[in-house]
């Protein structure tokens, strides 16, 4: 129950859990770095200095440079913005799609429910990375297409969840009470059911942010993501792939960032899930 009246309570509960605090620190760290990237980045992330190619980490280039002489540290800072943006927007988009479909299916029931749920099942039958790959391959490379691919491959779980909550809430006496005072279907759906569905789906979305970062990086790594020269972490790992033996820093640092952010979001997500599971019992 992540609405305004519960939020401080949730945060307090989170602060009592060591792993939750760890996750929170990691995530805040990454978010802050991405936000202030223009202030602290020593170089332009796109600036190629061919005379400074493939430099190992030093005081001048904290994380070294890549084969086009770009400063990896600066690219990582800006890359954080890209990765976070992709992750957050794709999760938001996916929850919106899922919620819409789940609400319709759960509230209307019957044939429409059957039809929508079979479509959902079809999407769920494929592993989401494979599905995202297929969708990304069909679209042109680009940030918005990456977001589309990830959300199209991940909405079904939100749809299922939204449907389950809708069905459960639909049968509560307070909905019957709303009918008894003459509330219309639209009013019941928007005013009574959606406020119960949003927090649950939002929590699930939070839990999945780590996964979205990983998928985005995976697409980038395989060349279906954001096109070069954009500093995207997955793409950066891939760019250093053939030089990993001689110039380890090119792939390692962005890889580490992917690892860190996924761990951070998962820690946070797991703890959130625990907190809410307890409360739902």
């Amino acid at each position: 129950m992540g609405d305004h009246m519960m939020m401080p309570e949730t945060l307090r509960e989170l602060m009592r859990r060591k792993l939750g605090v760890a996750g929170l620190i990691i995530i805040s760290f990454i978010i802050i770095l991405s936000l202030i990237a223009p202030l602290i980045a020593p170089y332009d992330p796109l600036d190629q200095r061919l005379d400074e190619r493939l430099q190992p980490p030093s005081s001048k280039h904290l994380m070294g440079t890549d084969k086009l002489g770009r400063d990896i540290f600066s690219r990582i800072l800006y890359g954080g913005r890209i990765s976070l943006f992709i992750a957050v927007s794709s999760v938001v988009l996916a929850t919106l799609i899922g919620m819409l479909i789940g609400l319709i299916a759960g509230y209307l029931g019957g044939r429409i429910d059957d039809l929508l749920m079979r479509i959902t099942d079809m999407f769920m039958a494929f592993p989401s990375l494979i599905l995202a790959l297929a969708i990304a391959a069909m679209l042109k490379p680009g940030m918005f297409n990456v977001i589309t691919a990830i959300s199209l491959s991940s909405w079904p779980q939100y749809a299922r969840m939204a449907r389950a909550v809708t069905i459960q809430v639909k049968n509560e006496p307070y909905i019957e009470a709303a009918v008894s005072i003459g509330a219309s279907n639209t009013r019941i759906l928007i005013g009574h059911i959606i406020p119960m569905v949003i927090p649950q789906v939002m929590i699930q979305g939070m839990i999945n942010l780590g996964g979205a970062i990983l998928t985005a990086a995976g697409l980038g790594f395989l060349g279906f993501g954001v096109p070069p020269p954009t500093p995207e972490w997955g793409l950066m790992v891939s760019e250093g792939r053939d030089l990993i033996q001689s110039h380890w820093w090119i792939s390692t640092f962005p890889g580490l960032m992917i690892f860190l952010s996924v761990v951070g979001f998962n820690l946070l997500g797991d703890q959130l899930r625990d907190i809410f599971d307890v409360r739902y019992r």
Binding site: P173, A177, S180, P195
Partner: peptide, 22 residues
Amino acid sequence: LKDLRRSTGIVFQDPYRSLHPR
């Protein structure tokens, strides 16, 4: 139907579940 709703009301058994929790 709207008129009927206006002229009738109901109080349910379980006040813990008949009020919207949010």
